[in-house]
Design a protein around this nucleic acid. Sequence first.
RNA 1: GGUCCUGUGGCCGAGUGGCUAGGCAGAGCUCUGCAAAAGCUCGUACAGCGGUUCGAAUCCGCUCGGGACCUCCA
Length: 499
Amino acid sequence: MTELKIYNSLTRQKEAFAPLTPGYVGMYVCGPTVYSDVHLGNCRTFISFDIIYRYFKYLGYKVRYVRNITDAGHLEGDRDEGDDKFSKKARLEKLEPMEIVQKYTLGFHKVMELFNNLPPTIEPTATGHISEQIEMVKHILKNGYAYEIDGTVYFDVEKYDKEKPYGILTNRKLEDLLEGTRELSGQEEKKGRLDFALWIKAKPEHLMQWPSPWGMGFPGWHIECSAMSGKYLGKQFDIHGGGMDLAATHHTNEIAQSEACFDMSPARYWIHTNMLTVNGARMSKSAGNGFLPGELFTGNHPLLEKAYAPMTVRFFMLQTHYRSTLDFSNEALQSSEKGLKRLWEAYENLEHLKQGAMFPDVGVDTDLDSRCQELITEFDISMNDDFNTAKVLACMFELVPVINSIKGGQVAPDRISRATFDRLHHQFTIYLHDVFGLRDEATYDSGHLAGVMQLLIQIRKEARARKDYSTSDKIRNELQQQGILLKDEKDGNVSWTVQ
RNA sequence: GGUCCUGUGGCCGAGUGGCUAGGCAGAGCUCUGCAAAAGCUCGUACAGCGGUUCGAAUCCGCUCGGGACCUCCA
């Protein structure tokens, strides 16, 4: 068994993974800001980390997977003024901010469930950890890396950078960063143009505010993740993840905050997932090129030619490495849909073969047998190489003809050994269900429909027996119009699938 | 301007210095009452130009083209 290697954004190279505590993994992933619906790009990140979480579990680790819900604090613009997103949305929808939070949190969970993402083991909210955040800000102030001006506390980036490299995560020098920053506007009070707020003074009319040593206010944009990861995973933990877009600001600031507070880098491995694009441009809320999962599942969007099932989308994402951009297109989705169907049907064939398999090891084709073993072994090898799901799928697809040939009779079942067959079945099952989190998406009630289908198949069989092909074709054709496909197989059996 | 990523056959997409990625689409064949499915066979791709090397799509340089981040965003 090869060792797991992870691409660490912090060092910009693949590194062997060694947890702080053998057998345990602590992983923090930046979750959604619940002031609006998550779009497909957001989902990609959470699906990527779901696979990573599942793979660690598959490897036998006990994983504490913390993914936050940001339900306070984020401001609309890039200045420390104006309203937060929740208050704005609340006024727009004529709801309490916490109703907004509840609404979109529930929606988020629903979407995660549809994509078959496992829930994290802890899902803390920012508003539930105000006191922890205040404590952390106090600590940073005490350590001298922050200053207060009129009820707002800022992090002093330039002072911090004298001791530790602020731009370490994205490999940037402070001078370059300063150059790229826009001029301070006259109304801003912070000292350095890179300084960011840890705690923000609230205006009286502000809907979400809490008491603090600096007066009524609310937490800054980045402190919640530092406070909550510290609380649940410790000052230092194994993995911190999130979308690539968070690296330059949010994660950079998180590192600075944790270092300033605990004198320790928070995470040992940083994993960043790449963006989902549409026509080459990043899908984002502000660009307005985002699909909501609901639109995807119903096909109700101008850019969508048809509806796509959640598992199709999940499979689509699995075919690309998490660090590559993935471009959305109808063509790509449709090819994924067909590919998944083929893979899943092969898996079902494998299940059936498993039930009837009683063949002895007599005519084993050693070439075929060892090739199968190699391919199965490559599942783990590929995943160990920075979670290369695309490679695993390629191996699975290479095994599909083997499975289908045994089923179809082109290859005798005893050409592969019992041990190989069992391993094939076992690894297919584990990978499809447990590691990749795919599930059968048959939209039919298999109980009743299966009975009716048996009846129709029987009638058609009788018609064919007396060469009444007009009846048999009628049954098949009309079923097809209902989206049910009949397949006459070699051995005389008839199978059916819902399109 | 700075920091990076990237350019693979019709489309989508893995990838290692020399050995078939894979999916979808397409062509032929087998099976079949017909179809569908399945099986078998087929494309010898790696932006361009140089260099390193016995050998490079894979390493280096240059050119051209995409993209991300540097402002809230997964």
